[in-house]
Design a protein around this nucleic acid. Structure first.
Ligand SMILES: [Mn+2]
Ligand SMILES: [Mn+2]
Ligand SMILES: [Mn+2]
Ligand SMILES: [Mn+2]
Lengths: 222, 222
DNA sequence: ACAGGTTTTTAGGTCAGCCTAAAAATTTGT
DNA sequence: ACAAATTTTTAGGCTGACCTAAAAACCTGT
């Protein structure tokens, strides 16, 4: 059975929305907002995806991926993230430049291609934004990273990913000089505005607004 | 102005068909055959392409690319051939495996991507089948190669390309052991069936049927 | 010059994927 | 509990890209 580019995008949207709240159904409006497509159109598509057994759809109640839909969505995510690694590692793109191109490349259809690309890149486990890359069987590491601003005490962490993927935010981090893998130490938490004073890689100290800190995912340093 | 994937394929078809006979208009039926799309549908599309000023179309008389149409077609060809080089050189695909994947990749839209891919590959001048790769300005080397079977006397040549790109023909050449760049020496031309006895790389001799020889493009050895 | 064959266009239809407007179902607040 | 607000679906339309069948234009041979 062939799945169109458009259908792949719906499945991917449902997949990522389904992780916002654990195990909750995804609503028509959520998909509509996420894809910037009118709700009436989404209803249309949900009927077609249900027809193809890619989702479980109950009118007025929302939608869940079927096993087939889930594995299709994960394959698209795998392709997206592998291509992002290619663009950054091999073609020297910056991490804020690759998403739009990967949105196109993720729909290229060839198992052989992906298998070889994966090998060429050294079977990477994470993409340039710290997001885990599903393996060929669709398994992916669950990242247990926590937004920096959820830490309420001083401590040392590693910057492992971003919660927000917008170009402007990524560029902001670049201008701050913060890269994936950097050491991040909370030196002060400001009561007044919940901003953070943070030392990066044991050298320079910076102030992060709470909003910035909320989009910086860190792990306990080991 | 945005050009759809389908439109790109029509422009590419017109581009390659327009080289069969120098400067002749391309007919509706030629396009129809080439793309395996019914003539009535082709007429439809020609009207739309003419509307967009991508072709010059005179009903009942055929079609020529406009400057804009031509440069669009050449860009697609450039992308196709660069991706084929990537697949063979970097991902170790065989030359008979890459065409279908490149048919998809050629529609990825990003000037920056192509510029970087070109650089990454070392600005190659030819694709894995010996076809010239247009440069960023759309200039391409005219290959003055001649089918082997058009030579009527013994002589030494270099194998520079194929006239036929089918998987089976490419695999046949691989099994013969003939690769782009190989030295090819005509040792005998058989009067009876116009087959050729050919020495490859000064080592092993082979018989080529006239049909095979007609699809092997060679240049005078220098 | 014109009949017969070929090529091309026109006419009318389908399907996917989008839309707006209106109706129906559900949820929320008092 | 029920009116108001919100969400979702239905109804009807449009466009791009395909199709078949039929008409029109063009070409060819005598
Ligand atoms: Mn991305
Ligand atoms: Mn990413
Ligand atoms: Mn090709
Ligand atoms: Mn090629």
């Amino acid at each position: 059975m062939l799945i169109s580019l458009t259908e792949e995008n719906y499945l991917k949207a449902i997949y990522s929305l389904s992780h916002l709240e654990a195990d909750a159904d995804v609503s028509t409006n959520q998909i509509s907002d996420h894809l910037s497509i009118k709700a009436a159109t989404v209803t249309d598509m949900l009927k077609r995806l249900a027809e193809k057994k890619l989702i479980h759809y109950i009118p007025y109640q929302g939608v869940k991926l079927s096993e087939k839909g889930k594995s299709t969505a994960i394959k698209v995510v795998r392709k997206h993230r592998l291509w992002e690694v290619f663009l950054v590692d091999k073609l020297q793109f910056k991490w804020d430049e690759v998403h739009e191109i990967a949105e196109q490349l993720e729909h290229i259809n060839s198992d052989e291609l992906i298998q070889r690309l994966d090998k060429f890149l050294g079977k990477p486990k994470f993409d340039p934004h710290g997001d885990p890359i599903p393996d060929a069987n669709g398994q992916l590491n669950i990242v247990k990273a926590i937004p920096l601003n959820q830490h309420k005490t001083k401590g040392s962490f590693t910057f492992v990913g971003v919660a927000e993927h917008s170009k402007t935010f990524l560029q902001h981090l670049t201008s701050i000089g913060l890269k994936i893998g950097d050491a991040v130490k909370i030196e002060e938490i400001n009561e007044f505005d919940n901003s953070f004073k943070v030392k990066i890689n044991k050298t320079n100290s910076q102030f992060f607004s709470n909003k910035v800190a909320s989009n910086i995912l860190v792990e306990e340093k080991k």
